[in-house]
C-alpha cells in the first residue's frame, strides 16, 4: 500500500511540476504577448496592405535588399504563412531564393516581434526560457537573433539564387 501511495505521489508530482511551468508561462508570457501582438496588429491594420506592397516592391531590384529588407517586410507585415505571397513581385528565377530567405526568417523575428509567427514561438521561447532561468537578460539575445537572422537570410538568398540560375541553365530553361 505504501509503495502504491509513493508511486501515486511521484506520478502526480510529474504533472504538478508541469502545471507550475504552465502557470509560469501563462502569467509570465501571455499578458505582455497579447498586448504586444494586438499593438502590432493594429499598426499593420492602420498602414494597410496596399502601402506595404508599394514600399516592398521598391526593394526587389537590388540583390542585397531583395534578400534582407524585402523578406523582413514580408514576414513582419504579412506574417507566416501569407508572407510568401510577396514572391509574386519577383521574376520566376528569384522566387526560390526569396522563398528560402523569407521562410528562414520566420523564427529569428519572433524574439522581437512574436506576432509574425505566433504559432511557432517555442523555437525562440524554449531556449530563451533557459536564459531567463539563469537570471540573464533576454533583450540583447533577441536583437542578436534578429540581426544574425538577417545575415543568414541574405546568404541563403544569394546562394540559392545562384544555384537556381545554374539549375535553370542546366535544364535548358530561359531565365
Amino acid at each position: 500500500m505504501e509503495v502504491l501511495a509513493h508511486l501515486a505521489t511521484g506520478f502526480i508530482a510529474l504533472f504538478q511540476k508541469g502545471g507550475s511551468v504552465f502557470t509560469g508561462l501563462v502569467t509570465g508570457i501571455i499578458p505582455t504577448l497579447v498586448v504586444l501582438i494586438t499593438a502590432v496588429n493594429s499598426v499593420i491594420g492602420m498602414i494597410g496592405e496596399e502601402k506595404v506592397n508599394k514600399i516592398a516592391q521598391l526593394c526587389t531590384g537590388n540583390i542585397i535588399l531583395r534578400y534582407t529588407l524585402f523578406p523582413v517586410i514580408a514576414v513582419f507585415f504579412l506574417t507566416n504563412p501569407i508572407c510568401y505571397s510577396f514572391g509574386r513581385f519577383l521574376p520566376e528565377k528569384y522566387k526560390p531564393a526569396f522563398q528560402d530567405a523569407s521562410i528562414s526568417f520566420v523564427h529569428p523575428i519572433t524574439g522581437l516581434f512574436p506576432h509574425a509567427n505566433s504559432a511557432e514561438l517555442f523555437v525562440w521561447m524554449g531556449i530563451s526560457q533557459g536564459i531567463t532561468q539563469l537570471g540573464l537578460p533576454l533583450g540583447e539575445l533577441a536583437v542578436r537573433y534578429f540581426i544574425t537572422g538577417v545575415i543568414v537570410i541574405l546568404i541563403r538568398g544569394i546562394v540559392t539564387e545562384k544555384a537556381t540560375l545554374y539549375m535553370f541553365k542546366k535544364n535548358g530553361i530561359e531565365v
Binding site: Y84, R88, Q99
Partner: peptide, 8 residues
C-alpha cells in the same frame, strides 16, 4: 506551398 503562394 510557399512557392505556389508566390504564384511560381
Amino acid at each position: 506551398v510557399g512557392l505556389s503562394l508566390a504564384e511560381a
